[in-house]
Design a protein around this nucleic acid. Structure first.
Lengths: 345, 345
DNA sequence: TTGAAAGCGCTAACAG
DNA sequence: CTGTTAGCGCTTTCAA
């Protein structure tokens, strides 16, 4: 007993025959292309509906476009990235483009995922916080229209959209200083690569922290621990900070997930938040808002970032030669219950 | 000044010419197909390397396979789903298959995302917790090899992999009862559709709760509030429960995200966890483990689920006619700090 | 405005 | 074992 063999897929030829026109005509209607009378369009549309025809993207791609946009997220677990994705899809919702995602990928898999997307004929790529060397990104962008998100640095080959991380860091420092803190420490993600030290958000946040501290005359209080943007990185970083002869009264973690580790270490040390130590994060991820956590954080307006990225991508698909654009969006501070005046203030 | 036009992509013809063989030979090497001498394979491989050739998936798909597996996740924000994805990709890592994800999709977009994946020539589909009617899933499965994850119910058309939600619910109830609780309430996700009332995990968890309560002689204590698997659903559900004349001493939330809402409502009512009320979730999501939350939860072994799904899919791609398989995996309980003995115990 | 015909890059029959 | 040839479903010249 065979499983019912699905009847051959309806093709453009079927539609053409049904509508009594040429396949060319059908193709024109599909692409809203020039050179088909209203009557013909109507007939073709009706045939398409009656037969339930859907064009095969792979076949279209062989000559023209696949109408597919590839989005690469570095870490699907970071609750900030879905925001960007939402922005991208919402902007593309009214178009013929479909979004497909690369699977969450670490540093090692990034190149492979990008290649896979190119090989699958994506019409455009949105790369979120890519770690690949600049030269590689430019080669990719030469192959297919590309927008790089969440990474600073200009290139004529691709557009960029990013949050102003320097300003974001300043918001946190200003907030904490405003509460009366002076010993404000920062936990950063260690970055060895020189280009990335300039272009990656983590580096910019650390820079922003230093600048802001200086700007407030707290130069002497600058205290940066270099671990990684992970919960463990936050935990270990906080342990170091809490072991200082005079420990900081506030910790600015470079990312919310880092702040989680900080909270854990602080609790373990028998200290309270924000009574003994204030803690702030960055990204305003979903769990920052969770009642039991209620973490002060910086909101990056991820949806807005995504929307802009999609818009730029469509523009670049329409005109591959256009000069590249850099968009920097201003973050906002979301104060919650993990920050308060320092104990002795 | 033109941007440097990327030189035409290397094709199978270029490789064939470079290696002085036919395109057929190259194709055979690419597919590890029968009928090519070792020497020829070697020559072709060398040519491929020298030219940096990569096959175009879209073109392959037109005749054969695209070597692409589509994975649909219902909600990219739920930290449980990435686990499944990890399992899928890890199982596929050694194969020629690449995974692409549909963008997080709500109830309304699901059909569109599935269609988009089919239209892009996916060789196989992994549908995680799909809400589409059974008949629709079967039609999809008739078109392309499909594995349905996290939804119960047999079908000859597709394989399924799911967690044993009834057992998971029993674990929670047993744990709470073991601590001395009797008034154990449950917050479920309301399900109107009759098929889904049987097949969806949320319904099975509610059933499991009822069964377990009965099994422990706590039939009279059964108390189910029907909201939704969201933070808000947990918040509102908890408010109802806390307003009971004699309020429950423990709340089993159907999902971790629901438990977050419960924790918030409990705190707002001036009660403590687990002092006054114990709270347990389901899914063992990343944030359940976060220090400040430390939520007792049920672990579904998402990676294992994903691995199994990928394995079944490969089997089905190899033999589309094979009889369908249903795999049910046993969850485990992860006790943390939100559950303890009831106040008066 | 319309349609015939020639590909896009690859795989699958089928001859040699 | 090897290569020739005919498509896959669609878009794109280019004549009519």
């Amino acid at each position: 007993m065979e499983p019912p063999v699905s009847p051959r897929r309806v093709t453009i030829v079927d539609v053409a025959r049904h509508a009594q026109v040429s396949t060319t005509a059908v193709s024109k209607v599909l692409r809203n292309a020039y050179g088909a009378s209203p009557e013909m369009r109507a007939r073709v549309r009706r045939a398409i509906d009656e037969l339930g025809y859907r064009p095969l993207a792979a076949a279209r791609g062989l000559r023209g476009q696949t109408y597919t946009i590839g989005v690469m997220l570095p870490d699907i677990r970071n609750p900030f990235f879905p925001e960007i994705l939402d922005g991208v899809t919402s902007c593309l919702a009214d178009t013929d483009y479909q979004v497909l995602l690369g699977p969450g990928c670490g540093v090692n898999e990034e190149a492979g995922v990008i290649e896979a997307m190119i090989d699958r004929g994506m019409d455009g790529l949105v790369l979120v916080a890519p770690v690949s060397p600049r030269a590689r990104l430019e080669r990719v962008a030469a192959d297919v229209p590309t927008v790089v998100v969440g990474r600073h640095g200009h290139s004529p080959a691709y557009d960029t959209v990013a949050d102003d991380d320097v300003a974001g860091a300043a918001l946190v420092v200003g907030h904490l200083a405003g509460l009366g803190h002076r010993r404000i420490a920062h936990i950063e993600h260690h970055e060895a690569d020189p280009t990335r030290r300039v272009e990656m958000p983590n580096a910019q946040r650390a820079d922003g922290y230093r600048q802001a501290m200086r700007g407030l005359g707290l130069e002497a209080e600058i205290d940066v621990v270099s671990t990684s943007y992970t919960q463990e990185g936050g935990y270990k970083g906080a342990q170091q900070l809490l072991a200082r002869p005079t420990r900081p009264t506030a910790v600015f973690a470079g990312a919310d997930i880092v702040a989680m580790g900080v909270l854990e270490a602080v609790a373990e040390a028998g200290l309270s938040v924000p009574g003994d130590v204030s803690v702030a994060g960055y990204d305003n991820t979903t769990f920052a808002a969770l009642g039991p956590i209620s973490l002060t954080s910086v909101d990056q307006a991820g949806r807005e970032i995504g929307r802009n990225a999609a818009r730029l991508l469509l523009e670049r698909i329409a005109d591959r030669g256009k000069t590249s654009v850099q968009i920097k969006l201003s973050p906002t501070l979301v104060p919650r219950r993990t920050t308060a005046a320092p104990p002795s203030a």
